[in-house]
Design a protein around this nucleic acid. Structure first.
Lengths: 209, 209, 209, 209
DNA sequence: TATGAATGAGTGTTCATTCAT
DNA sequence: AATGAATGAACACTCATTCAT
């Protein structure tokens, strides 16, 4: 009656459902979103959801997958892999935060909600590991003369953690994207110091004028 | 039956219940833990839980409160506030990660689960903000000659995010505490570089004296 | 199992449920009737009750509404509004008591139970007030030369109260409907007396012409 | 601590408890009043209630008994049994309604609530029957020349029902006691008519001047 | 005498999921 | 292809009642 009784091609229906699901999951969380609510939001009947996605868990998984893909594609599209590693990271950070900024409702929140169900610890961890790997490789190739014993993987962990934290700020609208990006880039290439403390001076002599 | 049917003074029962609740919430998450399960774990009857804590939500809140307190107390106890800011941060990082390492089951996991229910987004955010504030002040006082316009608050956000990420690694047992602590400390005082790449130098000229 | 697992149109199920609910509420009262018991009586599952009526309270309200409607319709149908007021009242009393007699299980008992929950004191009071109003108007138009200052509303209160009391007797089967009706009619048009006692005469002199 | 740890003689404690119980039952009804609430109101511990009254049901029964006794005693005390039947009824009605008016919170409400639990249909019915009997005897002796076949018992039922209805009005404070009493008395001795309708005239010729 | 501590049993309610059409 | 109708299973929460002190 209200526009939902049409026969639609599978692909369209799928997106319609995922849109609704992402929307609801994002706002209310995994457990606090009912299949009824999703069906209503999608303006279809509940059995359709089960026909297409089998279960609530699978539906949430599909949401995660789609949003993750979109995220990765968007960031990849913004990156020129022929740049220097430094520029690469820089561009990546901007691309990452810009995506978050432009898609506040979906990715970050959904991503956060994913930890709600034990069933997705797995998925989320895997996704994060992939990003960490990527960042780790970026760091490795971007650092000309690493200190011996530098654990780039752990650095990547920290960087990604910081990125998530900043991204969360961005997603709430509390922070300007480019300001945040600059800060992150600076922070990670140069640490906290503007002018280093005494001890720092010995370790890292200021760039000569 | 199993030796738990005795009369216990209020304070003891409270801890017994919180222990059970933290345990179950940590492992299974907020929504996937039933009050029945907690009662069984605590070897008491369900009405006791309600008598002492009023509702599942309040019980979870009490768990958060206790674990947060313990965490804060533990970290505070390890810190000598007469140290230089740099040493202070350093000690704090170690204390923080050591606590996580020694209490893997409780804090980090519970903290993570807290985001599951909309009702605790609030609490968790507030807690994190306090820590960010603290770190921000530490940074402010630890940096001798900051670049003009440095946003220490946002830096603190990033640092805390990185800390959480590293802590998560620690809590899964994948990482040695002291190694992780060194990395974080170095990272934040000195950035990623051993020596900066040539290009870095050109990109970010030092503030002119 | 017992022939009730069929798909039924909404309207049919609604009546089926209300029948069961009225039955159980009538026999056991509001608080002492569980939703489980009603579902069992209706040979459906509990969620259906909630799907159709939302809550126990609303279900009970729906019962009251339906029974009240039936009652009012039945009495109305028996009355010829072109009669003289006296005959009108007379017919109404008979109709009222006949309905009660023919529907012992439902209305009176349900009506009585309705006072059990604070939530329905309201509804019941309102219903009774409407009837009192009606009766009051009947009395007003049925009395040719009322004594000055006659409070027909309060009279209606008393009459309705008496009616309820007599109806209760009828509903237990202790009394014949027509006998009871005659008594009530006589009582209210003529008072208790056959012939007044001497003393009465002195106490209540007739309104002087 | 708050004045409830004293050792009190049994009789005092009993009243203290009944006072609290009547108060709570009256306001919230039988099922919607918890033993906890009563204990709190009485400023004693719950086991005391059970020690003295055995169960909630028995406690409510004790409330009913006490209030009924008080009511009967109060009405009896106001009546002079040497009066003429007419005056007797008249005085009784006034006494009855006055008691209700002076004890709004307790008797009527408690009496009404008594129907909430099937366990008290019995008690209440018995109490009402006694009153009906009494009234019936009053009527019998107060009517000099009854019409043949007059069913005084059923009349008493109606009169008591009317009395309850009017009493309810009184208990809500909507009606003045003496006005209500006059109405009831008139109503039952003389019926509704001021001047009778034609038909009435033949049956009950107006008192000659 | 008096009570803080404790619970068995049950209630209303919700939700993911499936069947019959 | 699509859905209205239906439910099994579980969950949060409450209460009358009793025990150990």
């Amino acid at each position: 009656m209200a526009g939902g009784t049409k026969r639609l091609p599978r692909a369209v229906r799928e997106q319609q459902m995922l849109d609704a699901a992402v929307q609801m999951f994002s706002v209310n969380g995994y457990h606090e979103t009912s299949m009824d609510a999703i069906a209503a939001q999608a303006e279809i009947s509940k059995p359709m959801l089960y026909l297409y996605y089998g279960s609530k868990e699978e539906l949430f998984g599909a949401c995660l997958d789609r949003e993750l893909s979109r995220f990765v594609e968007s960031v990849r599209a913004d990156i020129d892999f022929t740049q220097s590693p430094k520029d690469l990271l820089s561009t990546a950070v901007v691309a990452f935060l810009s995506y978050i900024d432009a898609n506040r409702a979906s990715w970050i929140v959904l991503y956060t909600q994913a930890t709600s169900s034990q069933a997705f610890a797995h998925t989320v961890r895997e996704g994060r590991e992939k990003i960490i790997d990527l960042v780790g490789r970026l760091l490795t190739s971007g650092t000309r003369h690493p200190e011996p014993g530098t654990d780039f993987d752990m650095m990547a962990v920290a960087l990604v953690g910081a990125g998530e934290a900043v991204a969360n700020r961005v997603s709430t609208g509390d922070t300007d994207v480019h300001e945040a990006a600059d800060l992150m880039i600076n922070l990670f290439w140069r640490g906290l110091k503007g002018k280093p403390t005494d001890k720092d001076i010995k370790d890292t002599p200021p760039t000569p004028g």
